[in-house]
Write a protein that binds this DNA or RNA. Structure first.
Length: 456
DNA sequence: TCTGGGGTCCTAGGACCC
DNA sequence: TCTGGGGTCCTAGGACCC
């Protein structure tokens, strides 16, 4: 068995360039929600030294002489382009595992009967994806997934590979390991890389020379798996549950929020979004968690973060049920935050110089909803004599109808009112958590909205 | 002024049970 | 005087990924 890892080059930037070729060869970055940080960079941006995660507002002062094209993220466009690329990959290999929006593993049959020239096959596939979608991809092929990831980095880094690197023989494996920095290995993050370097481990090859025992001690079995994969033994399984075990929707707010009332609007929206994701994977959740946190960058303000979980009476995936539980969890969060303020107040009264002072309310910068205890909806036990069960079924059916209306007429065509209680004073339109996110530099929805279709 | 979002896995340690 | 042993479950926190 061989694994091919197909990875889109600079995915978000490449999506933008497909529809706006004038960005070709320029310094381009794509920003996170609210135009916060740099999340994707063109090769030119990387070469210019722009680090990933740089706050947008710092770009101008840190790179005054650079002409930077900064775009808001357009996840609708990226998701659609990703789907097109994955469909082409699916035609080339029957067994494919989509690992993220820009990556997929392809399982390749290596039996002597097939006698495929894999290097050539990979080059053809990359060329086909490019021709049919405009997206550049790099392909790594090897006997383990970790080695395939490594191969794809070589394919990306050196033009000579013609978009595909095949690590085939034992000599090629050792050579590749010796050229590969240990911090770039899939599964070795910043922390472990720093500790390894302290011990003089620089390359992936050095890492494989450690004993299995010492790797296990320092990096647990996950590190040991990486070690074995680099040695050529396939042991990272992709038997991933197609159903996620937790689902989370969270956002930072453009402006900080204080009151429970103000928080209830985005929290309802996050809850509805989680409920939608549950229905998409045909599952239901048993628990709903809400978390809040203040702005860690504002050292002048009191910092606090907390979360509260509410158990649902029965597994659910309808908007009203998940929202109701989320609002209960939000109430619990706000009550706990109030309690913390009271304790802080009592502490202030202990010191003569702070007697009479009252701590300021917390200013919340970020909130989120997590649903957990996820079970397939086919396994839900129903009791036909139970009236609440009947009501549950109706609520679920109602949400499914809303899903199909939104699929047909666009996201947020119809939704639960508690997620849109505020109105934009300027436009008079209902404000939801999604349309209140800033993305002033977003490209059009070229592939998913007829009004945005390119005119030639 | 302005600083992202969504996941998984593993381990240690405490609570609890008989 | 002398105070066990074995197990499960849950949670928080750390580490990793894109």
């Amino acid at each position: 068995m061989l694994f091919a890892l197909v990875d889109c080059d600079n995915c978000y930037v490449s999506c933008e360039r497909v529809f706006n070729p004038s960005l070709e060869g320029k310094v381009v970055v794509v920003l996170s929600n609210n135009d916060g940080c740099v999340v994707a960079r063109s090769p030119e941006a990387k070469a210019a030294g722009i680090p990933e995660g740089t706050p947008f507002f710092q770009l101008a002062e840190r790179f005054p002489n650079l002409e930077i094209h900064a775009l808001s993220s357009n996840y609708t466009l990226y998701g659609d382009m990703s789907r097109r690329v994955m469909n082409i990959l699916r035609q080339s290999a029957p067994d494919i595992f989509v690992y993220s929006i820009d990556e997929a593993f392809l399982m390749l049959d290596e039996s002597p009967l097939t006698q495929t020239d894999f290097k050539r096959w990979g080059e053809d596939l990359a060329a086909r994806v490019r021709r049919w979608t405009g997206m550049p991809v790099s392909i790594g092929i090897a006997r383990t997934k970790t080695l395939a990831k490594m191969a794809s980095k070589f394919a990306k880094r050196y033009k000579g590979y013609n978009k595909c690197c095949f690590i085939d023989t034992e000599q090629q494996r050792l050579k590749a390991l010796s050229l590969f920095p240990v911090e770039d290995v899939w599964g070795i993050g910043r922390r472990h890389a720093a500790r390894l370097k302290e011990r003089g481990i620089q390359t992936a090859l050095d890492f494989t020379h450690l004993s299995a025992d010492s790797v296990r001690r320092a990096m647990t079995v996950t590190g040991l798996r990486t070690w074995m994969e680099l040695c050529g033994r396939d042991c990272i399984s992709l038997e991933h549950l197609p159903r996620k075990q937790t689902i989370c929707t969270s956002r930072s707010f453009p402006k900080m929020l204080i009151s429970c009332e103000a928080l209830s609007v985005p929290v309802s929206g996050f809850a509805a979004r989680c409920a939608f994701k549950l229905r998409q994977q045909r599952s239901m959740a048993q628990f709903v968690t809400v978390f809040l946190s203040t702005n860690p960058f504002r050292e002048d303000l009191d910092q606090f973060s907390l979360g509260r979980t509410v158990a649902l009476p029965a597994p659910a995936a309808s908007d009203p049920e998940i929202i109701k539980a989320a609002l209960a969890a939000l109430d619990a969060c706000v009550a706990a935050a109030q309690q913390k303020l009271v304790i802080d107040y009592l502490e202030l009264q202990n010191e003569p110089q702070t007697i009479g002072l009252r701590p300021a309310d917390f200013q919340w910068k970020r909130a989120g909803v997590i649903v957990s205890g996820i079970v397939p909806d086919s396994e839900i036990q129903t009791n036909f004599l139970d009236i609440p069960t009947k009501l549950k079924e109706k609520l679920h059916a109602l949400s499914c109808v809303a899903d199909s209306i939104n699929a047909r007429h666009g996201e947020e065509s119809i939704q639960v009112a508690s997620a849109m209680r505020t109105v934009d004073p300027e436009t008079g339109k209902a404000l939801t958590f999604r349309n209140s996110i800033l993305h002033s530099r977003r490209s059009p929805f070229y592939t998913t909205d007829l009004r945005d279709i390119i005119q030639v």
